[in-house]
C-alpha cells in the first residue's frame, strides 16, 4: 500500500504537468500573435482570461497537492503510507481480472453483436463463471434482461441501442412494435 501511494502520487503529478502543458496549447489560427505561442493563453488576453487560464492554474494546484501528498507519505501521515499490506492480494487480483475481463469483453462485443447480444453473453459469463449459479437460472436472467431492456429502451423510450451484426434479427420486432 505504501509503495502504491507514492507511485500513484508521482503518476498524478506527471498527469498534472501534462494537463498544464496541454492547457497551454498554442492556437495556430489566432490573430493575436501572443496566443500563437505555448502558454500564451494562460493569462490575460484581449478577450479577458485566455482559454488555458482555468485549466492551467487548476492543474498547477493539482501538482502542488501531489507534492503535499508525497510529503505526507514521506512523514507517514496518511493511512496508506503507514500500511505495509499489499495493494491487491491474490483474491483481489483474481477478481479484478475476472470482472475487468468480463466488462471489457462486454465492451468489445458491443461492436460485434450489439448491446443486447453482448448483454446476454456477459450475464451468462458472470452468472455461471463468477456467480456459479445454475444454468437454468443463468439462462433465464440472461434472456430476460435484454428482452426487458429492448422493450424499455427501443420500444418505450425510442432510444435505439446498437445491435451490430444481429441487426437483421430485430427487423421483424421493429415491424411489430415500432
Amino acid at each position: 500500500m505504501r509503495r502504491a501511494e507514492i507511485v500513484t502520487a508521482a503518476f498524478l503529478a506527471l498527469l498534472s504537468l501534462y494537463f498544464m502543458w496541454e492547457a497551454g496549447e498554442p492556437s495556430v489560427n489566432a490573430w493575436d500573435p501572443a496566443l500563437q505561442k505555448r502558454f500564451g493563453n494562460i493569462g490575460w488576453t484581449d478577450e479577458g482570461p485566455g482559454s488555458g487560464f482555468w485549466p492551467f492554474w487548476l492543474s498547477m494546484i493539482m501538482f502542488l497537492c501531489c507534492v503535499w501528498i508525497a510529503a505526507n507519505w514521506f512523514r507517514r501521515l496518511s493511512p496508506p503510507s503507514q500500511s505495509d499490506a499489499p495493494f491487491l492480494d491474490s483474491y483481489g487480483k483474481k477478481m479484478l481480472a475476472l470482472v475487468g475481463g468480463g466488462v471489457f469483453g462486454f465492451l468489445i462485443l458491443i461492436g460485434l453483436i450489439g448491446f443486447y447480444g453482448a448483454m446476454f453473453v456477459f450475464m451468462m459469463y458472470y452468472l455461471l463463471v463468477i456467480g456459479r449459479h445454475r444454468l437454468s437460472v443463468s439462462l433465464a436472467i440472461s434472456v430476460a434482461l435484454p428482452v426487458v431492456c429492448f422493450f424499455f429502451f427501443d420500444v418505450a423510450m425510442r432510444i435505439f441501442l446498437p445491435k451490430g451484426y444481429l441487426e437483421p434479427l430485430f427487423i421483424p420486432l421493429y415491424d411489430i412494435f415500432l
Partner: peptide, 20 residues
C-alpha cells in the same frame, strides 16, 4: 437479490444507462 446477480445487473445498467 444475491449479490452475484445484482452486481452484473448494475454493470449492465451502468453501460446501457450511459449509452442511453
Amino acid at each position: 437479490m444475491p449479490f452475484t446477480i445484482l452486481a452484473p445487473l448494475i454493470f449492465v445498467l451502468s453501460l446501457v444507462g450511459v449509452y442511453a
